Simulated scan of single mutants.
Amino acid sequence: MRNDRHSGLWQRCQRTVEGLALPSPFDAETFIGMLASARGRPIELIPVSARPHTPCGLLVTTDSADCILYTTDTTVLHQQHILLHEAAHVICGHHETAPAVSAAARLLLPNLPPSLVQRVLGRSVYSEPQEREAELVASLILTRARKQDRAAPAAPAGRDQQHSRVRRLFGAPEVRAPGCADD
Rank of each mutant, 00 (worst) to 15 (best):
E131P: 08
E86Y: 07
Q80N: 12
V17T: 11
V60K: 01
E131V: 10
S139N: 12
P52K: 04
Q80H: 06
G122S: 08
A181K: 05
G40N: 09
P113A: 15
G40E: 03
A154T: 14
R39W: 04
C13E: 05
A134P: 07
D182K: 01
P55H: 06
T72Q: 04
E29T: 07
I82E: 15
H89Y: 00
D160P: 09
S37M: 12
A145W: 01
D73E: 13
P55W: 06
R123N: 10
T54M: 03
C180R: 11
A100L: 04
Q14I: 08
P178H: 05
L35E: 10
S7Y: 06
A157Y: 04
L9V: 06
V101N: 07
T30G: 10
G8V: 09
L22C: 11
V60G: 04
L20W: 00
A181V: 09
Y70W: 00
S64N: 08
H85R: 10
M1E: 01
A151T: 04
T74R: 11
L109M: 15
L59G: 15
V48F: 08
Q14G: 11
P25F: 02
V90W: 01
Q130R: 14
T61C: 14
D149W: 07
P55Y: 02
M1G: 13
I91S: 09
C92N: 00
A21Q: 13
P178A: 15
L77M: 00
Q14C: 15
R165I: 06
D66K: 02
P52T: 00
S124C: 13
G33Y: 00
T61P: 03
P153L: 02
Y70D: 06
S115V: 00
A38N: 14
L83P: 05
I68W: 10
A152L: 06
G40F: 07
M34A: 13
P55L: 10
A157T: 09
S49M: 03
D63V: 08
V101G: 04
A103I: 02
L109T: 08
A21V: 13
I82S: 12
T62C: 13
E128I: 08
L59Q: 11
A98G: 05
S37T: 14
R39E: 14
D183I: 11
L20E: 07
